[in-house]
Design a protein around this nucleic acid. Sequence first.
RNA 1: GCCGGGAUGGCGGAACUGGCAGACGCAGCGGACUUAAAAUCCGCAGCCCUGAAAGGGGUGUGGGGGUUCGAGUCCCCCUCUCGGCACCA
Length: 869
Amino acid sequence: MSEKQKNMTANAPEPAEVRYDPAPIEEKWSALWKADPALYAAEPHTSQRPKYYVLEMLPYPSGALHMGHVRNYAIGDALARHMWMRGFNVLHPMGWDAFGLPAENAAIKNNVPPREWTQRNIEQMKVQMNRLGFSYDWSREVTTCLPDFYRWNQWFFLKLHEMGLAYRRKSKVNWCPECATVLANEQVVNGCCWRHEETTVEQKELEQWFLRTTKYSDELLDGIEKLDGWPERVRTMQRNWIGRSEGALVDFKLDGQAGAAGDTVSVFTTRIDTIYGATSIQLAPEHPLVKEFASAEGDLREQVDELVRQQGKAREAGDIGGIEKHGVFTGRYAVNPFNQEKVPIWAANYILMDYGTGAIMSVPAHDERDYEFAKKYDLEIRVVVLPRSIGQLADEHHAEAPLLPYTEMESLLINSGEFSGLPNDEAIEKMSAHAEKHGFGKKTVTYRLKDWGISRQRYWGTPIPMIYCGKCGVVPVPEKDLPVLLPQQVDITLMGGSPLSRVPEFLNVKCPKCGDAARRETDTMDTFVDSSWYFYRYTSPRAEDRPFDSQAAAYWFPIDQYIGGVEHAILHLIYSRFWTRFMRDLGLVRHDEPAERMFTQGMVIKDGAKMSKNKGNVVSPDDMVARFGADSTRVYSLFATSPDRELEWQDTGVEGVHRFLSRAYRFVMRHTGAARVGHEHGNGSHPRPGAGPGADGIPLPPKVRAVQRKLHQTIQRVTEDFQGRWHFNTSIAAIMELVNELYATEDEIASGKFPATVLAEVQRRLVLLLAPFAPFLAAELWEALGEKGSLLRHLWPEFEPALAKEDEIEYAVQVNGKLRARVVVPAETPEAEVREKALADDKVRATVGDQQVVKVIFVAGKLVNVVVK
RNA sequence: GCCGGGAUGGCGGAACUGGCAGACGCAGCGGACUUAAAAUCCGCAGCCCUGAAAGGGGUGUGGGGGUUCGAGUCCCCCUCUCGGCACCA
């Protein structure tokens, strides 16, 4: 089309209808909202309105939001806006998880200081968030890499240290050669680094700081039971992660003389009832006793080293479960304290040093792994438990019975001395008591959960506030000297240990105790420390003499709704729960759990796979905003599926949503005149659309009544979705139906049969319903309707059941459960009449024929089922 | 292996405590408007058979059984799939 033709079209006498062009609308409002942050500020905690703290997980400032963020924030923002409209005092903050490796990598690659890189990214992402219309209270912004935040990490660390919850020990750590740093167990995925999925994690011995998370093992586990506002999935994952296992410790005396590692070997078992079937002891290859036994013998040492290598390799490959079992007899024996029997001691590559005691009693008859091992090395297999039915007949000749399930609970003991004949659950109790009475064992509990190693050999993190002095040893930095500032000019490379150890001004320090030359700790903290408590800082972000104000926290906490990705179901959420308990014991807070309700949204995928640069299936939010607008992008992310499910991104779907918003926009813009009339008639207050008949008593035309009914049904559905299941896809579908219904009334409007007061009210409420999902569009239409002020006031519409009610009901009529006819009756028709009408239906009579009607089922408002024989 | 989700048209998905399967949207088809196209508006649409058509009949929620007047929904067994944990003693 030529330029001339374009102009001609534009100047055509028939004025083209106003088009929905999101860009100018969204830019206008985002500029306004940015200039007026007070719009979103929470009221002081003296507010009479009930508080509501809605929190989305803070992002890492990578430089650009991805669709997962958009989805997460669209959910949170819809909720925050809805709660505002319901009259709550809402806290809806945002911040930056700003420490971490990518900043260092960028520094190396592009020669930009991490701080600069991070701050630039934050600015970019803030622009994106503003453009997307998220209603964050930026006056409470928290950035974890700034000293006014991380000094409190250091302060907390000192407190943890005082309370004995932080300690230092040499430990084998997971080392990612790519990151050149230590990883927490939680950061190892299938033997590889969680950031470098292709990089195998190695084992290395280093002095590390640990936080005693295990002090709270039981509390963290028991607490899960009370978290009924959390997804079952997350609760299960946490239970598994804590991995509580009840059993018993039993000490076997070593046969022969005692060495440096003692004279007993202690085993952990959950099945003490099978102890008479123990035919060997299996030790982890790194067990101190194995080391002691092997030190004397070169041959054995070599074989043991091989077992260590095999286990290390399997661990690195993330396939410890698939390891081929190997073992070696140490030449030594231990004595079973129950029957005084001598059993051989082996070292085996499938026994883990970091679970239980690193030693087991091997019961081949009742454990698959032990069975496999015993078969391979020809060890004795002795049956000591049989199912109740066989058990009563059993005698020693059953020793050849096949391997029985390890957890055969309905079973009896045989060949077990004085315990023979007992059911095994009872035997567990009696035998544990027996062991305890005689001093060679006791009931105990072990956990999978380990203490949290927080030392990182990285630059871009919180310096650990500790000093090493030749005379005084490990000395905490005095509180008055906090923060220990992270130096700005640092040469970062991936080689070797901590970059801070190469900064003399940082490293060299005087001992706070004796004043002698000393050396600073050069490791920094795991960034999960920041995210363990950042949400408390939002409640008093400028507090200068403490991490946060306890009163402010007491008002806002617990978080009413926390929203984030399921990938944080274990790490971040367990650490946060730990941290809250630690702060409780420190006296800062009074509650146990940080978040009342948790919601984990599903991943955003494209073409069946997680979006990634490698696969080239990344959808950029900026791109979507440019093509369809922020509102369409947001609404689509909520409409495509329910928030807890995986979302398969489809650009055509965004287009459809855009079409819907466009329809809503054009309809309202076309009929803003009704609002003016409505205002005049309503004396400034908002008229309520009359029930059935219009305000003047004349019944509404059927299509208008249909709109009115649909409006109230929609308000009900949307309100309920917010309160319960959060199926915003159905909320939005309902609003679409309402808009479709409105389009069907154009004739009525044109002919003046649609009362302006009713129309104005429908439009107004339609806009209010849209507000949590499409805030820009809603703001624009709100203004066009002549309304003033923020939509975020106490404005959420109430639905009126009388208006939502159907006037007529269509009953489905079934014969023997098969749909045969439909009858339409007025809503209040009595049951008998409906039954009669259903039976009188031609189609029904034809189907029934001369069969006998046995009974007729009536379901009010739904159906009639005629049962015939 | 254990634990927890999930499987519904060509596609994304609806169906709250058992009660008309397929709402809403995408893609598709037909019509209106237009010189034409786009946009927009209105309509059709699970699949199969039958009929010129209106219509009629059958079938249908991963598979197999069951309970029920009635099952996508409840029970039992199985398959596939996603996620978590895993020689955890």
